[in-house]
Amino acid sequence: MDGVFLNPDPAAVDPMVPRPFRIERRLREVDGCFTLHLKAVDGRPLPYKPGQFNMLYVFGVGEVAISISGDCRDLNTLVHTVREVGTVTRAMAKLKPGDCIGVRGPFGNPWPVEEAYGNDILFVTGTIGLAPLRPLVYEVLNRRDRFGKVVLCYGSRGTHDILYEPLLHQWRGRFDMQVHVTVHSAHAGYRGRVGSVANLVKIARFDPEQTTAYVCRSETMTRPAVQALHDRGVTSDRIYVTLERNMKCGVGFCGHCQMGGSFMCKDGPVYRYADIERIFTVREL
């Protein structure tokens, strides 16, 4: 599949026009989940910040919002980890190295990093939520001396669907990072934790008075995660969460992702919890 007919002017910056990217590598992650390594056909990098997303376009099928999950310092490669859940992502799963897809972006409000300087850092996530959080983990580790303790609490369904498991082992092997992993169920004799992610927050070692927490979970599971953080004494102004809605245009035109007065594609998907606490539990919003 060749997408060079798209966006022929390399200087064009129209956010509605996809740029062609070629698939360099395709990695199989856990079941139903894969990672694409993309390179711009025109060679121009696509700088982004942790927490931002792109609209990925499978030609002839459709477009879908996918968070960027690579290291934002590596400008040569754009990395997206995708779960097969719909028509577009299922079509995307069939693409092979050498195929092209369209990319619009980056969009959205990134995870704030500088605001957390001097604080302990707590990442709370589960299943594929680690993918949008990974660029932030990389960035925090790249600036490791600016932070206190760095703690990652991650949960998955079972022992066979722990996303980026080798990377988690690598992080756990560092002397300057705590990595806590829990699963919902396991075989007898499993040496790790079995239970909820909220329980990991209870046992993690950090200073609640000086901690910035980044939560990347489904909205339903963000609530108990935030509650566990509140129980430990982390206040709402130091908790960042992500929200998800059906994003279409990516630039706040179409209103598909509107929540109250906020467009998630441009004001989110990352929010300070204190700023959205009032509307977070409003039903049907």
Binding site: R83, I128, G129, H184, S196, A198, S218, T220, M221, P224
Partner: peptide, 13 residues
């Protein structure tokens, strides 16, 4: 917690 884990299993991923 058990109820929340049921929710977790049905909403994530």
């Amino acid at each position: 917690e058990s109820r929340l884990r049921i929710v977790e299993l049905t909403t994530e991923p």
